[in-house]
């Protein structure tokens, strides 16, 4: 299991940031991803591995007011 925005979520071998975003349907254009506190740039989404037990944060970029 991994944690995504404080909620437990299933993990599978070979999971990348991109795979997680697709599974969770995080389809918004402006998002910020951190894995165990480390900022993951967008260009690394396809390769950045997510390990069992990781703590993932996905924030939508919001700026309206």
């Amino acid at each position: 299991m991994i944690t995504v925005n404080t909620e437990e979520s299933p993990w599978h071998a070979g999971m990348t940031v991109r795979a997680l975003l697709d599974e969770k349907v995080f389809t918004f254009r402006h998002i910020i991803v951190r894995v165990n506190g480390e900022y993951v740039p967008e260009e690394q989404y396809d390769s950045y591995p997510i390990k069992d037990g990781d703590d993932v944060m996905v924030l939508h970029l919001m700026a309206g007011g």
Partner: peptide, 17 residues
């Protein structure tokens, strides 16, 4: 919250307010 983003705006450009 906004990290290293150098964006001017966010999702609201697509999703409205």
């Amino acid at each position: 919250i906004y990290g290293d983003s150098e964006e001017y705006s966010g999702e609201e450009q697509e999703t409205g307010t």
